[in-house]
Simulated assay, not measured.
Amino acid sequence: MPRPPLPLGSWGKISRKQVAPGVWRAITRFRDYDGRTRQVEKRAGSGAKAERLLVIELRDRSASTAGQEVSRETILSAVIPLWWAELEDRNRADNTLTRYRDVVDNQILPGVGNLRIREATVTALDRFLKAVREKHGAATAKHAKTILSGVLGLAVRHGAADGNPLRDVAPVPVAKASVRALTVDEARALRAGLLAWQSASAPVGRKRPQDLLDVVDVMLATGCRIGEALAIRWPDVDLGTQRASVTVNGTVIYVPGEGLKWQSHPKSSSSQQKYTLPGFAVQMLLRRQVEQEEGNAFDVVFPSAAGTLRDPNNFRKQWRQARMDLGFDWVTPHTFRKSVATVLANAEGLAAASAQLGHSSEDVTRRHYVQKAHEAPDHADLLAQFGMEASG
């Protein structure tokens, strides 16, 4: 069965392939305004760069689409490039764009891309999102809903729809796990156990990393994410003042076709902040400053064994082995962030915890990062009156 024609000024799925050592090709089909569909390609030293160059070329070729009227008869796949151009102008993180592109290509375009705007009803979109959730999980369904909401919001702005049907689509249900954080005593026990684990003899043929505790300590001292911890550079560290500090300025991410990359901003703009350090973290950084070998191209505090950026996923693999051996199999790198939030919320209030983690609202901190207390307040004296004998 032949493929349906692309809408005018739009392109199909982009594919990348290495065609020679150090040469990658990105290629797709583009339907020009003469009605003919042509192959368009770009070449570069990496797949990601070739795709970026190709997208720029395609956006230039479809520039007149921006002035094209979007009507109730326009299909969604023709509106998506317009929405995508707006998304890129918002300077979203590379990981976000990669994830959105994957959802667009693999779920939205094949699932509802040929629907006309007038056909994108609450019923049709609700059915689609439920199918995505059943097959690919709640996270993918939530991403698809966010993208479609943006696309149909653009249609509303163009007068092609009276309202955004995504507002009335049923929420994507997500199983909410209760927050679990380390207590202070558990954190102390974990740190002591990890120090001993690093020093103990490893099984034959395996080598244990000697600085897992150092990375854990910077997360416990700040509440930063694992990618942000591994992106801290020595210029971000100030140990020469009475109140030593570290500033989180970026994060380490993986970009398909390019490998690890130091991204010049953390996950959110509010995460880019300066943290005053407790004593145990200051001592660790002073020691590393003395012991650090030269030749670290990114000047990061926690480089890989080869002196390059350290992969957060590799750290997670190393951490999984350590936590299993230590009996803390439930503790992930994100648990340290939750532990910081819980300690601060209990001692200083929710506002302090939210500010430390750089959240946009205290509600995010309360719902996802602070372990709830399961012990009711002591009101025994007040309630005792129910058991008193009646007077008179």
Results as ranks from 00 to 15, higher is better:
L194F: 03
R167F: 01
R188S: 15
A192F: 04
D94E: 12
R288V: 12
R3M: 10
A189C: 02
R31E: 12
L350W: 06
A202G: 13
A351S: 06
L58W: 06
W234L: 11
Q356K: 04
D34S: 13
L129H: 08
T247K: 09
G259D: 03
K49N: 01
V104I: 15
R99V: 11
W84F: 04
K207P: 00
P266S: 00
R191N: 12
D214Y: 09
S149F: 03
R316F: 15
N313L: 08
L350M: 14
G257D: 03
F336P: 07
S245N: 09
V370E: 00
Q263R: 03
Y275D: 10
A139T: 13
P209R: 12
V179W: 03
E348D: 14
L58P: 06
S354L: 02
I108V: 09
G159N: 09
D311T: 02
A124I: 02
M219I: 07
H143T: 12
A192R: 13
L190I: 05
D105W: 13
G12V: 13
H368E: 00
E86Q: 14
A85W: 10
W234V: 08
G387R: 04
N346T: 12
K338W: 07
W234S: 11
G227E: 04
A78K: 08
D238H: 10
A352D: 08
G35M: 02
V300W: 01
T98I: 14
Q273W: 06
C224D: 08
D102T: 15
A170H: 03
S10V: 13
G349C: 10
A231F: 04
N91S: 14
V19S: 06
R36W: 08
S271V: 02
T276Y: 05
F30D: 10
L382E: 15
V172Q: 00
E119N: 02
N106E: 06
L357P: 08
L166P: 00
D60P: 07
K176T: 13
F386T: 09
L309W: 03
V104P: 01
L220V: 10
A48V: 10
K135A: 15
A175R: 15
R59L: 02
L54I: 04
H374Q: 05
A131F: 10
A196R: 11
G392P: 03
P4T: 13
A351Y: 08
A345R: 12
H265T: 14
G159A: 11
T28W: 06
Q321I: 13
G295I: 09
E88P: 02
